[in-house]
Amino acid sequence: MAAGGDHGSPDSYRSPLASRYASPEMCFVFSDRYKFRTWRQLWLWLAEAEQTLGLPITDEQIQEMKSNLENIDFKMAAEEEKRLRHDVMAHVHTFGHCCPKAAGIIHLGATSCYVGDNTDLIILRNALDLLLPKLARVISRLADFAKERASLPTLGFTHFQPAQLTTVGKRCCLWIQDLCMDLQNLKRVRDDLRFRGVKGTTGTQASFLQLFEGDDHKVEQLDKMVTEKAGFKRAFIITGQTYTRKVDIEVLSVLASLGASVHKICTDIRLLANLKEMEEPFEKQQIGSSAMPYKRNPMRSERCCSLARHLMTLVMDPLQTASVQWFERTLDDSANRRICLAEAFLTADTILNTLQNISEGLVVYPKVIERRIRQELPFMATENIIMAMVKAGGSRQDCHEKIRVLSQQAASVVKQEGGDNDLIERIQVDAYFSPIHSQLDHLLDPSSFTGRASQQVQRFLEEEVYPLLKPYESVMKVKAELCL
């Protein structure tokens, strides 16, 4: 049975990233139509530049190519590739079939990587351009969430054990800070992308030097003109047959890092959902379990974690691919890159769409948070109580021993009897502590235990987050809708 299948058929496997999760716009960027249309555009740009620099290419040939950029006979191309065992030459023939007058000058002087690699770089750039505003929107939604809850005390956790208090907004800023680093890295790697350009079979530009009869300047002009037509500021000066596969490492490393950030955020949300302090959106008709109707599973956060793990592992592909590119190139890269580049971007696209949807509907339960604080705060307040007693004339050592005994009794009630923490009640009825009984409410005010959390939130948002989001103001209103 021949390899390949009808990918629109229910009898043929289709990647869930495309069929179930990723956005239509990201799927289109990695589609065959987008790819092969870009090949034709690159052939047109090459012909236009070659004509401008004096090669015998007519206006009629150029116009014929322009008129057929979208006229792609995919069936013919597939048949040609089956016959020739070469995808680029299959599309040269297919393009030439609908451009008979231009057929002889299509791909003039070029090698397969002229269309293959340059198209990949265009796709990487455009895919990054799709991700950047999506990530900015996630940051914006979380920034709104953090600002609104900047002063809401909550129990902090280290080692997932109760620690000092923080605020809900401050905790959210930990998430935002990681995503801001990801946004900066995505922008950097996007701006650092260079075009492969017009380089020939081993990167020496020998074929173009021959076409222009040894004119170095025209060869350099050709490279520059096509690079500018493709919208790049610069091209690699040095290439082998391909652009260095280190570029793929750079791009997928940034995406993998984004995956790590999203995994951490969504894990926190899942843990908070278990504590009943916070939940992701839950639709009115949504079913959490087929057997347990009360369940409210954090399905979206779980999906993000599941896909983020996949995204983090994909960076190993370009690392290994770059390491086995012998001399000017081997074909070890080809099949692998067809999979890992598309999957990385479709996965990143999915987790950003999902995280935006989550961040637009996060639900906080202040009463649950308050109750958990009441359970733990008495123990945390013991040092403040000791200091207040010393100020009232008591002995630190005597007070410490009193607190120690009462704390152990209260802990026994919590752990052995399943009761509430009654340390404060014990202190309130103990005559030894009568000098500070009137101060206990103040000493137990949760806001006095959150330090500068709310001020940190305000400063972080104003100095770091809002300036970073400013270039994306025009796209901030787009909502994230999930079908599944």
Rank of each mutant, 00 (worst) to 15 (best):
G5A: 10
S19W: 02
P24V: 09
D32F: 04
R33C: 12
F36N: 00
R37S: 06
T38H: 10
Q41T: 02
E50R: 02
L53S: 10
G54R: 05
S67I: 09
N68K: 10
E70H: 15
E70M: 14
M76W: 02
A77R: 04
A77V: 06
E79R: 15
R83G: 06
L84E: 10
V88E: 01
M89Q: 13
M89N: 02
A90E: 03
V92M: 14
H97P: 00
C98G: 07
A103F: 08
H107M: 03
C113R: 03
L124D: 09
L131W: 12
R137E: 12
R141N: 10
E148N: 11
T154S: 02
L155K: 03
T158I: 04
Q164D: 01
G169C: 02
C180E: 14
D182F: 06
N185V: 04
R188L: 03
D192P: 01
L193P: 08
R194P: 14
T204G: 02
L209T: 04
L209C: 03
Q221D: 13
V226T: 13
F232H: 03
R234K: 01
F236W: 05
V247Q: 06
I249D: 15
E250I: 10
E250K: 14
A256R: 06
A260R: 02
H263I: 14
T267Y: 03
I269A: 05
R270I: 04
E279A: 01
P281K: 02
I287M: 05
G288Y: 13
A291N: 12
P293T: 02
R300H: 15
S306D: 03
V315N: 15
D317I: 02
P318A: 07
Q320S: 02
A322P: 02
A322Q: 12
Q325Y: 06
C340V: 15
E343I: 01
A344C: 07
T347A: 08
T350A: 07
T354E: 04
V368F: 14
V368G: 12
T382I: 06
I385L: 13
K391T: 11
S395G: 07
R396A: 05
C399V: 06
Q408G: 05
Q416F: 14
I424M: 12
Y432G: 03
P435G: 11
D445S: 15
Q456L: 07
L468A: 05
L469M: 07
K470S: 11
K470F: 15
P471F: 01
V478D: 06
